[in-house]
Design a protein around this nucleic acid. Structure first.
Lengths: 213, 213, 213, 213
DNA sequence: GATGAATGAGTATTCATTCAT
DNA sequence: AATGAATGAATACTCATTCAT
């Protein structure tokens, strides 16, 4: 089991370390059994904690699921941020961000499974992923490479494409071409021609070399 | 409460009528409480049947949810079939079918809610909706209006757009423009330019007049 | 599955044949699942009859269990009767009867399992097996070969030895020596010396040749 | 209701005390209603505990029945052990042990009822009663007072005699003569003559004075 | 007599949550 | 803060039994 969040809390107070331990266990159990089938006692047992300890940190399973998903998204988003510091054109930013999101969430399979499972229960406005999406789409509109209306309909549709791609790759295994197709579709929805979308995806690949972990 | 499936079974044997009655109740309860919160006893009570009768017809709630979703899809698909008898060009067929699906599933709100809720548990190959999708996309490729690769990735992505649109409209109310945007996005993913996609959506509207129920 | 009781009823009225069929199914199901785990529907299903048909013949499962055990005992007892027509000395009669009971109930394994399972619920006085026991013990007392008090304590103890032997052989397989030991113990309890008991068991063997089915 | 096992756990941790309380309740309910008719909720109610508490201690009713029977046997066996410290000859040991078993299990009527009811489900090798049986029979063989083969057949047959006697006395009331007959039968099966068996039983009576509780 | 759909009382079992230690 | 025994509401599911056909 990955001890990601527990390790993150090394050096912090005990409360934070216990919390991190619960998050790690939650990721593990949610991924294996699904959020709705997960029992609090499964999670505390794997965390090596007593049953009641859970309630010192979370109100109930719903809050835990939310916090878990947010913690995962935060981690992935911070990775994306680092990759994009110097990328200027919107289409490349979108391809890089989307690819990195899909790659990370597929490789850290448990994270991906939790995200897919929790997606529909997550408050839409909390999906931090959308933050970069929205900004970069606006950037593309400003740069004149996109041709669309930036609203919730659009953001929803793009999110649906990404989550569908993630779900597929979690089921059938990582497939770089699936990620490329997904990026291409997003660019097409944003108004780029098929040829331009394909070209943009291809040109962005060198920026992703570092991902080939 | 709509007695759709019970009425369908008029004239059939008692067993079929009872089954129809359970499906109608299930739609109603699933839509109001969500599939996972629905209790068997709620469903039988609304159906005016004894608790145990449920188990003469379905193994458990999962099987009921599956059968309910399939029954809904079958109904919607048969309606779509009828609308498209004489439409020849692929892009129009896609727009009409998608619009009709969205319109029906949004107007019969309970049906839509059940589909959105149950979508992820449905065996993908059983999604009859995909049947017309696949055939019509191939038609468009043959007619030279689409430019893409017809595979599961593509079908998944289109289905994701449709379900996302349905989900949004169920939450915020029917919105003809949302449906139009959805159709446009599908055509764009299939390789049409933004301009052509918009034009195709506009040209297909007259075929949908009958839907304005 | 053995169709013993159904075949017995060949030529009789339909009611009797259906009843026989239910008895055969009951033997089969009781033997496999135990009486307390057997469901009425299991029995009717195996009999090829509808659920409700059961209640045209038996009040409930208890009555069925009783009737099934009695039918088995009747069959076995009638076989024993035939074997003993011309045997005069009490100790030989007891050995022959006991051996034949054990052999038949072990070979017809389902019968044995039902008897062992139902033994404790059976009304003691209905155990027809005891009929020959009692008479033959009295005979032995009259002949001066037994030395005991003929009462319910004695009959119970002998029945316990027989059922224990049956239970053991059903679990570990038929074992002629186990049956011989059982007969020997019965004769010892009845007051015979070890040597006489062993000799009596040995001398009775020729009478049992016909059993070596 | 006897609080035997709860009292035994005085001073132990709460978990053990609760467990003892459940065992006491189980004895009470099993004795009154029979194991198969006993409801978990009856047992917890009498124990003054919540329904769910049962499942913190036992997997299901079967496990409870087993543990209850084993606990009873352990108690009785420890009483027998104490009575026999200084008895040397095998036949007396057997008579004392058997009599004490029957007396205790008949006087503590609930214990006897549970043993008779649960006897057939008990794992044979766990029947601690057999431990003293086996050792003492071997002792008698060494002392030259018994004449038999010491194997599972023999142990089963003796156990059957004892349980049959217990069952009878539970139904008709304690009867010292029934216990004596039982002991006599056991000694006869072990190869003693009727006269010697009767004498051994008589001679052992003074050792049992302490039992007249 | 046989059928088999419907009934509904009866219970086991789960598991989130509390709280005394 | 952590513990873990106790709680008890919530419900799924079984299956003997009835009865209209």
């Amino acid at each position: 089991m990955t001890r990601h969040f527990e390790i993150r809390a090394r050096g912090a107070k005990k409360r934070q370390r216990t919390r991190g331990s619960l998050l790690d266990s939650a990721v593990n159990v949610f991924a294996r059994q699904g959020i709705s089938n997960a029992k609090i006692s499964d999670i505390t047992e794997i965390a090596g904690l007593a049953n009641g300890t859970f309630y010192n940190h979370f109100k109930d399973k719903d809050e835990l699921a939310l916090q878990t998903a947010l913690a995962i998204i935060l981690e992935i988003a911070s990775g994306i941020d680092q990759s994009m510091g110097n990328i200027k054109d919107a289409q490349t930013r979108l391809v890089v961000a989307t690819t990195q999101f899909l790659t990370t969430a597929t490789k850290a399979k448990d994270w991906g499974l939790v995200l897919v499972d929790g997606y529909h229960q997550l408050p839409k406005n909390k999906i931090e992923t959308a933050v970069y999406l929205k900004a970069d789409i606006q950037l593309g509109l400003d740069q004149g490479v996109f041709d669309t209306t930036l609203d919730n309909v659009l953001l929803d549709q793009i999110a649906a494409l990404i989550m569908s791609s993630l779900s597929l790759q979690l089921a059938t295994g990582i497939d770089k071409n699936v990620s490329k197709r997904t990026c291409q579709h997003i660019l097409q929805i944003l108004g780029m021609s098929t040829a331009d979308a394909i070209k943009s995806v291809r040109l962005a690949q060198p920026k992703l070399v570092g991902l080939q972990l």
